[in-house]
Structures are given as structure tokens and as C-alpha cells.
Amino acid sequence: MRTPVDGEVFVHYSQICVESDPDGDGADLEGAFAGQSAGLCGAGIPGALWLSTGLHTGDVPFRVEVHDQAPPLDDAWEDVVEVSFRPVSAHTVLMQWAGEDTWELGLRQVDYRVRYCARGMDEGDKARYADG
């Protein structure tokens, strides 16, 4: 297992993306979730993933693990979704909103099965309204 990202990432608008198309316009919300119902990880655009977070704006703990085979699912996760993903270039990054920061993921151009797991989504969403 490799861990290319392990720490806090800053999110805006409850989102962070995986991008592998250096010439593309990025993952748009409508296209990313086309034909999907979960709303947690949009994979409708080739080479991109739209990841939703509970927190609207701020730092969230985030970890990316790359495994050779499916790891066991930990019961601690409250929300889990799996999607298919294939990078469209040799350069795939986890990207903050508007490209403010990126983390290189070191993925090959092969098919992946992505499992996006989250917990505390409801608490993150409620934090948006706590001060207002």
C-alpha cells in the first residue's frame, strides 16, 4: 500500500477533486454526478472524480491509499461508495477547489476501483450553520 496523501486538506463548497486531464476544464458538478444517485463521489467525467465533504469550508482530514487489492472495509465509516476510475494522463492529482493546491497521486493509466469513505458528514454540514 502507498499513501500519497495523509493529513488535512482545505475544502471550499464541500468539494475536492481528483483530476488527470491537464487540458480539461475539470470536473463540473452536473457532469460528475450524471447517472449516479449517491452524491458522495461523482465519476461521470473520464479521468476525474468529484468528492463531496460534509464541511463547506475549512480543513478536513483526508487520506489517499493505493492498494494492489481491495482492503477490508472498516466498520468505522458511516458513508461508503465505490466507483470505477481510469486516469486519462500520467499526471493525476488530488486538487483543492480552483486548483489552489494539489497532491500528486502517482497513478498509472490503468483501471482502478475507488472506494471513498467518510464519517462526520452530517456534523460537517451542521458546522456551516453553527455561527449564523
Rank of each mutant, 00 (worst) to 15 (best):
residue 95 M to V: 10
residue 17 C to N: 15
residue 70 A to F: 06
residue 10 F to L: 12
residue 80 V to W: 12
residue 113 R to E: 12
residue 115 R to P: 03
residue 68 D to F: 10
residue 10 F to G: 07
residue 9 V to H: 04
residue 50 W to I: 01
residue 60 V to Y: 11
residue 4 P to V: 02
residue 48 A to L: 13
residue 56 H to T: 12
residue 65 E to V: 12
residue 64 V to Y: 01
residue 46 P to K: 04
residue 33 F to I: 05
residue 90 A to W: 06
residue 93 V to S: 01
residue 82 E to L: 04
residue 42 G to N: 10
residue 14 S to Q: 15
residue 105 L to D: 09
residue 59 D to F: 13
residue 86 R to S: 07
residue 64 V to L: 05
residue 49 L to M: 09
residue 17 C to L: 14
residue 5 V to C: 02
residue 32 A to Q: 05
residue 24 G to V: 00
residue 65 E to D: 14
residue 114 V to C: 07
residue 87 P to D: 06
residue 31 G to C: 07
residue 15 Q to M: 08
residue 26 G to S: 04
residue 112 Y to W: 07
residue 107 L to I: 08
residue 55 L to I: 02
residue 64 V to D: 05
residue 106 G to K: 06
residue 110 V to E: 13
residue 38 A to C: 11
residue 52 S to G: 06
residue 124 G to A: 04
residue 34 A to I: 10
residue 122 D to I: 14
residue 62 F to D: 00
residue 117 C to K: 01
residue 119 R to T: 13
residue 54 G to E: 00
residue 33 F to G: 00
residue 20 S to G: 08
residue 62 F to R: 02
residue 19 E to I: 03
residue 79 D to K: 05
residue 32 A to Y: 04
residue 94 L to R: 02
residue 83 V to Q: 06
residue 105 L to I: 11
residue 57 T to I: 12
residue 120 G to W: 06
residue 82 E to G: 02
residue 66 V to Y: 04
residue 68 D to R: 08
residue 8 E to M: 11
residue 115 R to T: 09
residue 72 P to C: 06
residue 116 Y to L: 10
residue 114 V to K: 10
residue 32 A to V: 08
residue 27 A to P: 05
residue 130 A to F: 11
residue 131 D to P: 02
residue 54 G to D: 02
residue 7 G to R: 06
residue 131 D to I: 07
residue 66 V to F: 06
residue 56 H to Y: 13
residue 16 I to V: 13
residue 79 D to V: 04
residue 8 E to P: 09
residue 93 V to N: 00
residue 98 A to H: 11
residue 67 H to I: 05
residue 123 E to D: 15
residue 110 V to Y: 08
residue 14 S to D: 10
residue 84 S to K: 12
residue 108 R to W: 13
residue 73 L to P: 07
residue 34 A to P: 03
residue 82 E to W: 06
residue 4 P to L: 01
residue 19 E to G: 02
residue 89 S to C: 09
residue 124 G to S: 06
residue 44 G to V: 03
residue 96 Q to C: 06
residue 125 D to Y: 13
residue 41 C to R: 00
residue 91 H to K: 12
residue 112 Y to P: 02
residue 56 H to W: 14
residue 52 S to T: 09
residue 92 T to A: 15
residue 51 L to V: 03
residue 38 A to Y: 09
residue 102 T to W: 00
residue 96 Q to A: 15
residue 48 A to G: 14
residue 47 G to L: 00
residue 107 L to T: 05
residue 66 V to N: 03
residue 6 D to G: 08
residue 126 K to Q: 15
residue 82 E to H: 04
residue 125 D to C: 10
residue 79 D to R: 12
residue 43 A to E: 03
residue 87 P to A: 04
residue 114 V to N: 05
